[in-house]
Every structure is written in structure tokens, then in C-alpha cells.
Design a protein around this nucleic acid. Structure first.
Lengths: 281, 281
DNA sequence: TCAATCCTGTAATTTTTATTACACAAACCG
DNA sequence: CGGTTTGTGTAATAAAAATTACAGGATTGA
């Protein structure tokens, strides 16, 4: 319970002088509580020891402890990112950064419109199928995104594999792809022929392909069951991949919700292994 | 002008230790500023007198005066009508994709405001220094972003290395870090102790560190010359890393422009090697 | 490379702040 | 009505915080 509510709740049971302190505190919340005992006492028209007795009655060990808790309350109220964005104001005029972010925002906006809800849902459904394994792979620049998505997906469901390493080892890894498996491809312009070929091989092995690509569609689209086009144009010297990653995160988010029960248990286990040095269960 | 903006504006002109204090203050605004000098100094990893010099530079007569003004700022923010509206805000019932993208957009917006121009420019300057090598590394989930940035940076300048592989091999790779080298760290919550340690080793080797982190600042910030805080909160089950990647792209974009002549030549050469089967020149 | 300037941390000092001891007053209860 | 409990403020004390003095290091510019 926040301090303010605590004080309000206690108001009825307080003796006279302490009640004056409570009122002064609530009326000038939070600033007066963050200054000194003497100031609070003066504002309430009482003495310092009464302030001490007041905080003791609320259950605090000392005045500094009371202030510590109060600071946390204030922090919590002021800290949400949205709040922060709003109140920070346009103080910093950051042309270069702003320009980049603006074009990224435009890409995201366009991507949101380019991806049909039905395709998105279809992709989520495939990824939520825990019985089939899920493989991820990307091109020269997008493979890191595939890897990122694999790392996160692995947290919420089993049998996630990143198709990594040298191109030449892909053939070997193909052996682990079984009928019904889901394969997520990331591929944007300057489509790589080896990736396209890999897609065809995947189809031969009866895998179901989800393709995340640009609006010009990688040739893999021919083999894919679900195609999610992302806007990558950034009128810069190269293409931005942010939209791909944003889409990846959205997919993960959606899948983690639909698997919520099993995902939570899995996350807890991984958490234990990683940070608490437990063997898992 | 509110204190927070005042600090942001001054960031560029502050000496190293005081800049750390500014970061600690901004990252933990406002609570840390309402506690004692000693606590702020400890959080920033510096000493009490430096805190005093910091507030003096901002134009305050004393630390208590600084706190008095800060209390008023906080009071004003908590009293604003927007703030009260926020606490009763309704949850939006968007389709999944739209909701995800909206929260991503909010993160980007907040990040844009959280990154001071001076720091962004300083980072670009370090990355544009072609004489020194540039190393990139990240944590459990952010290393893919480090890898992404390395792949792109490599296109526009020489001597870019991704500090990859097992943790145990880092020590060996450290040998290649020379005085003056630039090291880009990506590190967000659940800061990894091994990364922090690596940062310290880097400093010992006289490397210059650029840290891309969350608003709570990885401990690496103590060793870093430039700190770029990104908003990662996404009120989901995990933190979103989109803002980190967006910042990485913005950095690349900015650096490629400042190196335009040499970068263009290099890009052409790589292009030839990759797609036209030429040996380069 | 040397001098000068600017940063920075340690430790001593001063000032402020919280806390305690105690005495007086009011309310409560037999 | 006493005696006791409860509440309150004044003044002394202890604790803590802020501030200053100083010296070693780093950086910069000639």
C-alpha cells in the first residue's frame, strides 16, 4: 500500500497534533514529506518529536526509512515510459537521431498496414504448435534477427532451432527437419540464391514455411504458406531491418500469450537455471 | 526550466565523473536526487565532493537548495492534470499486431527523448575514428543486435569486430583490443556480471567504451565514456529490444554520412566481391 | 616534454538533522 | 477526586549529512 493511502487509513485513529501532521502531509504530498522533520512540523504547527511519533505509529523504524519508502512511491508514479516520454518534453533537439527515428516510425507504420491480420494470425498459429519443431534462418543481414527471434521463442516453447553456421552445413541440419515442422525465413532484397534453394528443399521435406520479407517478396514466397511483408525502405544508403524485428517481437508476444500457461512454467524453469543456479525441474 | 532538462542540456559540457552523476540522476529520477549526496555518489560510482561540484555547476548554492527545487519539480509533475488522468487510463482493446506496434512506437518515442544529442554525437565521433579498431559485444539477448550492428558497420569502415563465441574465449579476444580502440557494449536488465567484468578489463586496456543500455543503466556505465539509454519497457512479459536496434541503425546511418567518401568506396568494393565475383581492389 | 590547468578522491571539519530524555498538561478511570 | 495513562513541547544529545581543504593524477597546449 502506498504511504498516502496508509496515512488516509490511519487518519481516524491519530491524536490531535499527529492528525495535523497527517493533514499537512496529505495537502502537500509528496514534497513536504521529502524535506526535513522540522519543516513538516512547522507546516503542521507542531513539534519535531510529534512528527517522529507520527511516523513510528505508521510502522516505520525511523524518519529516513519513511522517506525512503515515500521516494519509492513517487518514483513508481513518475516512471512509466509513456509518462517519461511525455514529461521529458521536446527539450533535446536531436536532428540526426530524430530523422532516423522518424523514418523508422514511418516504416513501422507502413508495415502495420502491409501485414494482413489474417496472415499474422496464421503465422502465430503455426508458431504456437508445440508438437512440431520450429526452425529459423535468415540472410546475410537478417540472420541476426532470426537468431534474436530464436533466442526469445526458445524461452516460451520447446524445439526451437536456429539454422546457423556456414551455408555448407545447412544440408546437414536439414536432416533434423521433419514433416510438419515450421520454418521461419527472413529474407530481404538482394535475395540470396542459396536461401531460396533451401526453401525449396524445406518444402520437399513437407515443412511449413513462414516468410518474413520485404514488399517485393523474396522468391521463397512461392514455397511459403504464410508471407509477411515488411516495409524496409528508409531512403538511406541501405535498408532498415527494424520492421522485421518489430514483427518478430509482435509474433513472440502474441505466441507467448496464446501459450500463456505452458510458457510461464517454461520461463520460470529457464529463469531458475540461468540466474538461480537451479537444475530446473 | 525543470531540473531534469537542465541536466540533460548540461550533459555535453560535463567532465567525466560528473557526467556519471548526471546519468545516475536521470536514470533514477527523481528518487535518487531526493536522497543523500552519499547515495547518489555511490550509485554513480564517484565521490561526494563530485556531486557537490555537479550541483554547483548547475547553478545551485548548496545541495539542500538543489533538493528543494527538485521537490518542487516533482510536486508540479504529480499535480498536473495529465498525470491524474493517466492513473485512470483505460486499457485499449486493439488487435494483437497493432497493440504490439503501438507499444514499440511508444518506446522509440521515449528513447528519442532520453538520448541527449551530445552523447549521440560523441558516440558517432568515436565510431567514425577509422584509425582505431571497433569491437562490438552484447548480452544474452542483445548480442544479436551487436552482431547486426557489426555486420553493417563493417560495410562502411574497416577494423570492425564482433566479440562473439563463448564467454570463455573473450579473454583471448581481448588480446586484440589495443589502446584507443572503441568498444560498443549492449547490455540491458539482468545485467550479466561477466559483461561488466569485461568492460572493466577493456578500460584497463585503455579502450573507449560506448554503452547502449536501458534507463536503469548497466553497471558498465561506470566504465563507459558514452552512455546511450534506450527505453525498453513494453508492459509485456519481457523487455523489447527494438529501441536498441533502432539506435544502432541511427548510429550507422550517421557514421556512414560522416564517412561518406571513404564509406562509398568501401561499399562498392564489398558489393563487387559479394555479387559480381570480383576480387576487390 | 614540460608546465599549467582542470578533475577527482580522501579525509578532516562544520553544519544540519534526527533522536532521546524529560517535564508538564490533559484526558481517562477507579 | 487522586492516580494513571496518553499526548505534547523544550531542550540536550547523538547521528548523519553537507561542506571544505588538500594533494595526487590526468589532460591539454605550448
Amino acid at each position: 500500500m502506498a504511504i498516502r493511502e496508509q496515512v488516509q487509513a490511519a487518519l481516524g485513529t491519530l491524536p490531535g497534533a499527529e492528525k495535523k501532521i497527517a493533514h499537512a502531509f496529505l495537502a502537500n504530498y509528496p514534497s513536504i514529506g521529502l524535506s526535513t522533520i522540522a519543516e513538516l512540523a512547522a507546516l503542521a504547527g507542531t513539534s519535531a518529536p510529534t512528527v517522529l511519533r507520527f511516523v513510528a505509529r505508521l510502522g516505520f523504524e525511523s524518519y529516513p526509512e519513511f522517506q525512503r519508502v515515500l521516494r519509492n512511491d513517487v518514483q513508481a508514479q513518475l516512471m512509466s515510459p509513456l509518462e517519461r516520454a511525455r514529461s521529458t518534453g521536446p527539450a533535446t533537439e536531436n536532428p540526426a537521431l530524430k530523422a532516423s527515428f522518424a523514418s523508422i516510425a514511418a516504416n513501422l507504420d507502413a508495415t502495420l498496414k502491409a501485414v494482413p491480420e489474417s496472415e499474422f494470425e496464421a503465422a502465430c498459429e503455426l508458431l504456437s504448435d508445440q508438437k512440431s519443431a520450429c526452425h529459423l534462418i535468415g540472410g546475410r543481414f537478417t540472420d541476426t534477427i532470426a537468431s534474436y527471434m530464436a533466442a526469445h521463442l526458445r524461452i516460451i516453447r520447446p524445439n526451437v532451432r536456429h539454422f546457423g553456421g556456414q551455408t555448407s552445413t545447412w544440408r546437414d541440419q536439414l536432416l533434423d527437419v521433419r514433416p510438419g515442422d515450421v520454418v521461419v525465413f527472413f529474407d530481404i532484397r538482394r535475395y540470396q540464391s542459396d536461401l531460396v534453394r533451401l526453401g525449396e528443399l524445406m518444402v520437399e521435406r513437407k515443412a511449413r514455411i513462414v516468410l518474413i520479407t520485404d514488399p517485393w517478396l523474396s522468391p521463397i514466397a512461392r514455397s511459403a504458406r504464410v508471407v509477411l511483408p515488411c516495409v524496409v525502405d528508409a531512403n538511406r544508403t541501405w535498408d532498415s531491418s527494424i520492421a522485421l524485428m518489430a514483427l518478430a517481437e509482435a509474433l513472440i508476444d502474441r505466441v507467448s500469450r496464446s501459450l500463456s500457461e505452458s510458457a510461464r512454467a517454461r520461463m520460470q524453469t529457464l529463469e531458475d537455471i540461468h540466474w538461480n543456479n537451479l537444475p530446473g525441474r
